[in-house]
Simulated assay, not measured.
Amino acid sequence: MSATVPGTSGPTGPVTLRPWPVAAARRLVEGVAPAPADAAGWHPDYPLPETVDVLAMLLAAHAAMGTLAGLPRWWVHEIRVDGAVVGDVGFHGPPAAEGPAVVEIGYAVVPPLRRRGVASRAVAQLLDVAWADGADQVLAGTDDDDVASQGVLRRTGFRRRLAGDWAVRRPVAP
């Protein structure tokens, strides 16, 4: 079954998230060809160039913190549409040890599936993960001319701050 998202150019199937396997992330960052199981179902345009950069950043950060023994919290997820990996969405790292739990996110979708609501649905699901894991606030950044990404953030509850970035706070329970 396909769903049409208002304000998008067409239907896509169900959007689901799956944490990137740490071993597969290491192989990709090291330039090793992905194992068939790692690349099973990847869209022909995936992984995106920024995917490798994000995985490298997260692997280094979590290695420095000693949190790579298992699947770390505050990690990156594959975005899947009808089982195919079409992008990624995730946290730039964990919140600070002190004070409110504030995390930053990023996301990317393969060009053929942009403007179809995929990123909006993936970000909404990642926000659910953030709230469940104790985040108080989630931040995101966009380029000033990236109207599409700003639309994703608006649709998922983010508001632009004076600093130029975007933020959404944990919903208050009724």
Rank of each mutant, 00 (worst) to 15 (best):
A132W: 12
P44Y: 10
P95A: 11
P100Q: 13
L113H: 14
R114Y: 09
M57Q: 12
A61Y: 03
H77L: 02
A97K: 02
W42L: 04
W75N: 04
T51I: 06
A135S: 10
A35I: 00
V32G: 09
Y46L: 13
A69Q: 14
G31Q: 06
H92L: 12
V102P: 03
V109Q: 08
D45S: 13
V32Y: 02
P36I: 04
V129N: 00
F91E: 06
D133E: 15
A39P: 02
V86H: 10
H43E: 11
V85H: 15
G83E: 15
V103D: 01
P44R: 12
P94C: 09
V103Y: 00
V109L: 11
Y46T: 09
W74A: 05
A61N: 07
P72L: 09
G31I: 11
G83F: 13
L126D: 00
D128W: 01
L48Q: 13
L71A: 14
F91W: 02
P49G: 12
M65T: 11
E98G: 02
P94D: 10
A61K: 03
A69V: 09
V54L: 01
V123W: 00
A60W: 00
G66W: 11
A56N: 08
D53L: 05
G90N: 08
V32N: 10
R115A: 15
E50V: 09
P44G: 14
A56E: 02
G93V: 00
D88I: 08
G117N: 01
T67V: 02
I79K: 03
P34F: 08
I79M: 13
W42G: 12
V110W: 06
L28R: 04
P49Q: 10
A37E: 15
A61G: 14
D53E: 15
A96G: 13
H62T: 02
